[in-house]
Simulated scan of single mutants.
Amino acid sequence: MTTARLLACLLALVSLSTVAGSAADNTPAPAPSSAPQPPTKHFLIVLRLVPRLHDEKSWTDADKSAVGQHFKRLQAAVATGQVVLAGRTEEPLAKTFGLVVFSAADEAAAREFMLGDPCVAQGVMTGTLHPYGLALRAK
């Protein structure tokens, strides 16, 4: 399987796990807390492959492993409700980019989440963080 197909499959699985998780989740919502909760802030990470990985032949096993760890981390964050959406464009490696919309307490926590991504930490992808106003959301 080519690296581009591997990435596309991994990100498609994120989408499927989100749909399957929401369909299978029949647990009742917890009772509302009387303590005021801080407003949820949303952020957007734009992920891009580093230039050396624009050619599939340049991918090492370590690069592929980082993508697998990245995917597992996103799956876990979807399961907890932190990640709202994750995916990538379906373009050649030199043009593609990924998006992650997620919640965090503040910009420092959001930056920590981004920098803790295995692909960012291991130099497979670069990430740019943006505050994000989530206006509409599917239920």
Rank of each mutant, 00 (worst) to 15 (best):
M1Y: 01
T3K: 03
A4C: 08
L7K: 02
A8G: 05
C9S: 12
L10V: 01
L10R: 13
L11W: 00
L11K: 00
A12G: 10
L13Y: 07
L16K: 03
S17P: 06
T18E: 00
T18D: 06
T18G: 03
V19I: 05
A20K: 08
G21L: 03
G21F: 13
S22G: 04
D25Y: 01
N26P: 00
T27F: 01
A29V: 09
P30W: 14
P30G: 11
S33L: 09
Q37L: 15
P38Y: 09
P39R: 15
H42C: 07
F43W: 11
I45F: 14
L49G: 09
V50Y: 03
P51Q: 14
R52I: 11
K57C: 02
W59D: 00
T60E: 11
T60F: 11
T60A: 11
D61S: 10
D61C: 01
A62M: 08
A62R: 14
K64N: 10
S65F: 14
S65C: 13
S65Q: 14
A66K: 12
A66D: 13
Q69L: 05
F71M: 05
K72Q: 07
Q75R: 10
Q75I: 09
A76W: 08
G81K: 00
Q82N: 12
V83D: 02
V83N: 04
L85W: 08
R88C: 00
T89R: 15
T89F: 15
E90C: 05
L93S: 08
K95R: 03
T96L: 10
T96D: 03
G98D: 12
L99H: 15
V100N: 08
V101N: 12
V101G: 08
S103N: 15
A104D: 15
A105R: 08
E107N: 04
A108S: 10
A109T: 07
R111P: 02
R111W: 02
R111E: 02
E112T: 08
G116Y: 13
D117T: 07
P118W: 09
P118D: 12
C119A: 09
T126F: 00
G127N: 01
T128E: 10
L129C: 04
H130R: 04
Y132G: 00
L134K: 05
L134W: 04
L136M: 11
R137T: 11
R137M: 03
R137A: 12
